[in-house]
């Protein structure tokens, strides 16, 4: 299942590594990645494939949220379908 991971927070060293290591540990494959820093704020968007994930999707979502908060980051994962539905006919 393809999903979009977004990470928003104050920029600092190692955010990408931090988030990617959580994903890797749980068998989530990163397909595409894009990031920018705008006025000190870090925004990263990743397209991932969660079909090999060892956790149920809802647990993965809760884990990312929790681990993100630990580093003062807003991390969320949402199924790609929702964006397709809203922005493509």
């Amino acid at each position: 299942m393809r999903a979009i991971v977004t990470v928003i927070g104050k920029d600092k060293v190692g955010i990408i590594a931090y988030v990617c290591s959580i994903l890797a540990k749980n068998g989530v494959n990163v397909l595409d990645i894009s990031q920018t820093v705008l006025q000190e704020y870090f925004t990263m968007i990743m397209l991932v494939d969660a079909s090999g994930c060892s956790l149920p999707f809802t647990d993965l979502s809760a884990l990312l949220k929790e681990e993100g908060l630990r580093e003062s980051l807003s991390v969320r994962i949402m199924r790609e379908d929702i964006f397709e539905a809203m922005h493509r006919i």
Binding site: I4, S34, T43, I45, L47, E80, I82, E84, M86, H87
Partner: peptide, 12 residues
């Protein structure tokens, strides 16, 4: 693929 501004718009 869905572009970045669309993703951020949805989240906002």
């Amino acid at each position: 693929m869905i572009n970045k501004s669309e993703i951020l718009q949805t989240i906002e």
